[in-house]
């Protein structure tokens, strides 16, 4: 049994814990909690960075948001991007995980290299690869007889092109989590099912997939959040064009805050985006637990 006297010992522990936690907590307070509160406050204000003028405007920013057709379009574009990127990326990641598990070890290394390549470099290089006349992709397509495509210069092809480069960059992350999920499935499940006469398709359908559910939910949430944060490739390559076809939410926040000097409106959009992502995350978690 514990014979320590609680008082002196516990107090010393408490003080040590406090001192050890303090630097991190101060950092979080200044750079996460306070900005979060401030973003909410700012959403109710008209804030001009140049003049420093700051005035309460109540729900004005949110009223503007409700009737801003461009904002609606940016949300729609972001959802379209999400639908192009996330399902395909996750399906590909699972396929690659299954392949890598049975394939050579260097293949996994190759698939992971884009995840340690910076977003700027990936954007810039793919931006050049997509070039209609001098780009590598059209010459690859030409090699198999496909006529040259406009890619980023076409409002139909711009968003799928961005989604493809993001899949290329991010699929390694998702693959790693699928690999981790796959190795945590006990091997005797497969052996038992195989002795009962299950074929490999049944093994996948009735053992692998159900046991990867936790991984799928986790990846769905993180990939969704990542998708709704997309900024760099679009900022660098298409700048939202052609004709707003790739204007996404974070780009619109950036432009409002740092180009149009509408800090309050930018904050209001940020709050809407944060709430939207929060609702999606909580809902996915709930839905996955309910079943």
């Amino acid at each position: 049994m514990d014979v320590r006297r609680p008082s002196a010992h516990a107090i010393e522990h408490y003080r040590s814990a406090l001192l050890l936690s303090l630097p991190a907590l101060v950092g979080l307070a200044i750079f996460w909690y306070w900005p979060t509160i401030q973003a909410v406050i700012l959403g109710f204000q008209d804030y001009n960075l140049m003049s420093g003028s700051q005035a309460w405007t109540g729900l004005e920013n949110y009223r503007t948001a409700a009737t801003d057709p461009l904002l609606g379009l940016t949300f729609l574009n972001t959802v379209i991007y999400f639908l192009m990127e996330v399902p395909l990326q996750m399906a590909l990641a699972l396929a690659l995980a299954l392949l890598v598990r049975r394939g050579p070890a260097w293949l996994r290394t190759v698939i992971l290299v884009p995840t340690v390549t910076s977003m700027v470099v990936v954007s810039v290089i793919w931006g050049l690869m997509y070039h209609p006349n001098s780009g590598l992709i059209n010459s690859l397509l030409g090699g198999v007889g496909v006529p040259p495509q406009p890619f980023l210069t076409s409002s139909q092809q711009a968003m799928p092109s961005i989604a493809l480069l993001m899949i290329w960059k991010n699929v390694g992350f998702s693959m790693l989590f699928f690999l981790a999920g796959l190795v945590s499935i006990p091997r005797n499940y497969y052996e038992a099912a195989a002795t009962d006469g299950a074929n490999s398709r049944q093994l996948f359908r009735y053992i692998t997939l159900p046991l990867l559910r936790g991984t799928v939910v986790f990846l769905l949430i993180t990939n969704t959040v990542t998708a709704f944060k997309v900024f760099t490739p679009i900022f660098l390559i298409t700048e939202g064009g052609p004709i707003n076809a790739t204007r996404v939410v974070v780009l619109y926040i950036f432009e409002n805050a740092f180009r149009f000097n509408k800090m309050g409106y930018a904050a209001a959009i940020s709050v809407l985006l944060a709430l939207f992502l929060l609702v999606i995350s909580v809902y996915s978690l709930r839905a996955s637990r309910a079943r």
Binding site: P35, Q38, F231, A266, S270, L277
Partner: peptide
């Protein structure tokens, strides 16, 4: 990305 405006102001 949702708090970058206020982190910037901070």
């Amino acid at each position: 990305e949702t708090i970058m405006v206020s982190v910037f102001l901070t």
